[in-house]
């Protein structure tokens, strides 16, 4: 369970990116966060794993307070939270398997991981993660030789290898084409359903959110302006999030497919 209580984030420059956010996400939920660029979506996501420190209020993940947590606590917390990035953030010059094994490093004795002597059980977990995103045939290929969509699936496998309770995806499909976007989004939804991992996805656009999400959180200028069922989104809420009226275009849902 993830709980925000009156959380604020003020960046060192004095910019207030999140103000007075309160929300609760239950274990196993799939939540989509939308909002304009600069609305604070990434900030909200990164407050959950402590990448961005909150400056007021509280954020709890499964009962652990993130605000002001010690380095060791934060690392322990992060090892249970998978993160998926817009730019995939793979190490290009090493194999897919090595990238995924990285997800195991908090669970393996330090000397083993440092020397690259991964236990067979952890290798098995890594390979199973690759199987789950259907890319196991690329296990021993260099990450640089993969397409964007394949790289993102490896990124998902890396997060899965952590065997996390929470998955944070920061615009996971923003650099992918529409077809690949759907494959990746489908993977994420399947993982959420099959494994019961709480999944929080930042998206720019409403159409993908409508296709895959159930609960929608709308942010505008750092404030929570909508929290509810996606099916209930109407003109009024859309204007609240995006600052303009809904047009037929916004609802087309990957129509060009």
């Amino acid at each position: 369970m993830i709980e925000f209580q009156n959380a604020d984030v003020t960046y060192p420059g004095g910019f207030k990116a999140l103000s007075n956010v309160s929300l609760t996400i239950e274990q196993g939920e799939l939540v989509v966060i939308v909002g304009l660029s600069g609305a604070g979506k990434s900030t909200l996501l990164r407050a959950i794993n402590g990448f961005v420190p909150i400056t007021a209020g509280s954020v709890r993940v499964n009962g652990t307070e993130v605000r002001g947590a010690h380095e060791a606590t934060l690392r322990e917390l992060r090892s249970g939270i998978g993160m998926i990035f817009q730019t995939f953030n793979l190490v290009h010059r090493t194999t897919v398997l090595n990238n995924v094994l990285m997800g195991r490093l908090a669970k393996v004795p330090r000397w083993r991981s440092m020397l690259g002597l991964w236990p067979a059980a952890d290798k098995e977990i890594a390979i199973q993660s690759l199987e789950r995103v259907e890319i196991v045939e690329k296990t021993y290929i260099r990450a640089s030789n993969l397409s964007g969509g394949q790289q993102q699936r490896v990124g998902i496998a890396r997060a899965l290898a952590q065997q996390p309770q929470v998955l944070l995806a920061d615009e996971p499909v923003a650099s992918l084409d529409p077809v690949t976007s759907h494959t990746v989004m489908r993977d994420l939804r399947r993982i959420n359903r099959d494994l019961g991992i709480t999944t929080i996805i930042n998206l720019h656009f409403l159409d993908l959110a409508r296709s895959y999400g159930k609960r929608l959180i709308g942010l505008r200028d750092g404030e929570l302006v909508y929290d509810g069922d996606i099916a209930d989104v109407d003109d009024e809420t859309f204007r609240g999030i995006y600052g303009r009226a809904l047009t037929p275009d916004d609802l087309k849902e990957g129509a060009e497919l």
Partner: peptide, 8 residues
């Protein structure tokens, strides 16, 4: 950043 995100 990714290594930090897995708890490294």
């Amino acid at each position: 950043e990714a290594v930090g995100a897995v708890g490294g």
